[in-house]
Design a protein around this nucleic acid. Structure first.
Lengths: 242, 242
DNA sequence: AAGTGGTCTAGACCACCAC
DNA sequence: TGGTGGTCTAGACCACTTG
């Protein structure tokens, strides 16, 4: 048990603990993907309680500098993936080009019907057939996003029979001759809840970024609607306008 | 003091409290910008403690459904502003076009010099003169973002003598004949800290979205570099690609 | 089996804001 | 001045993960 942190009484204790941890991360004594000391040990080291240690950890988490994994502990966040929604079509190629290792897991493939919410986004009619695909994607072994993909079976016959643990974009191009032309992208920060939080193995309420993408082909027909739930510390978005 | 919330023991108490509050928001008994009952009253109503009530509130805050203002209380979030970085040039016009009321306050105008960080982003040299402008912008009276704007005084002589409580984009066009041509935009979710949290009157660590924009004119010369710190629940970003 | 984070209690004092 | 959220203590039990 250490002495309590010196302080002029100015900054709250949990922020002074945060600052100490931030220094340890910047210095490099804590490197990306390494585990931090446990909450109890941190509380002890800094002469405080778990509640206060957790405030400090939550602060660093909000800044995107550390993350937690299930009940396994707190880890230093790796660098953000640069994502250019106007240019990038392939998650895997993008991850590889940044010197990291991608992985994709198919969680679910379900033929179903268009509901009211999807109808307004896809331009199809309520009750039309649609194929619902759920995937989880990883960078360097860390799950960073889950996605719901809705594929138009009229444009993509027998799509549900293919292997989805690869690039969907290549599948569409090579098997169906689809050249994606226009995209409508919408995104905003929000919390991860329910199935998304579960699939990523994070606590309900973890900060995330919600991204939707609606793609059409060269003839303007609806091809694919994509809904992505990212960990908020995993990406940085870049857009070029000319 | 009410009975404790019924529950099958499945969901944590704070999530059941969250659900009750979410229902009150959806039903309309709590409408945008109205204050929620105080933490102590909520704890009492749901037969629990302030810590648990705060967990429920923090969850709704993370989802972008409620926000807090200084020590004044918790409020229901208004709808997100739709922001199209590839099209929108004027904050004010965009806000008005969505039926809401914008306001802009100039916090600071400081002539200074390019540092290393700015040099890599602007293409100018370390030590070059630059004008640093800080503004706070509101929607319907709520501060939603603060921005650091760095203006090139070589391209914009005497820029520091103008009134900045108006559209900067119009000022550049009307006074300097600048037609902004290209933009490089980068954004990622992070926490609001330090001067930004202070200027917005929010707690350090509040979730935010960090946006930078580097603008060039038709000749490709550097004109303006902009750094924006948004409240995470205040905007939704849309990008169209053709 | 031991250790982790997740949840929760029942208090306390403080700084700040509105009245 | 009274009420608000912000911070903090000192515990507790639980679910889950890991060796």
């Amino acid at each position: 048990m250490q002495e309590r942190l010196a302080g002029e009484g100015s900054a709250p204790l949990y922020m002074r603990v945060r600052d100490q941890l931030a220094i340890r991360i910047e210095e490099g004594s804590l490197t990306p993907n390494t585990r931090l000391p446990s909450e109890r040990i941190l509380a002890d080291e800094y002469g405080t309680t778990r509640v206060t240690a957790r405030l400090a950890l939550a602060q660093l988490e909000a800044e995107g500098r550390i993350f937690r994994s299930n009940r396994r502990g707190w880890f230093v966040s790796p660098p953000r993936l640069i994502y250019k929604p106007t240019q990038d079509y392939s998650f895997s190629e993008n991850v590889i080009s940044q010197g990291r290792i991608p992985a994709t897991e198919t969680l679910d493939v379900t033929p179903t019907e268009i509901n009211a919410w999807l109808a307004t986004r896809t331009g199809l009619a309520v009750g039309d057939p649609i194929v619902w695909l759920r995937r989880r994607r990883q960078i360097d072994g860390r799950p960073v996003l889950v996605e719901n993909i809705y594929l138009n079976p009229k444009r993509l016959p027998a799509i549900e029979t293919y292997d989805f643990n690869r690039s969907l974009w290549k599948l569409l191009r090579e098997q169906y001759g689809v050249e994606l032309q226009g995209k409508h992208i919408e995104m905003y920060p929000t919390a991860l809840v329910g199935p998304q939080a579960n699939a990523l193995g994070v606590t309900i309420g973890t900060a995330g970024l919600y991204v939707t993408r609606c793609s059409h082909d060269a003839e303007g027909g609806f091809v694919e609607f994509d809904e992505e739930f990212w960990l908020h510390d995993a990406l940085s978005i870049q857009v070029e306008v000319y």
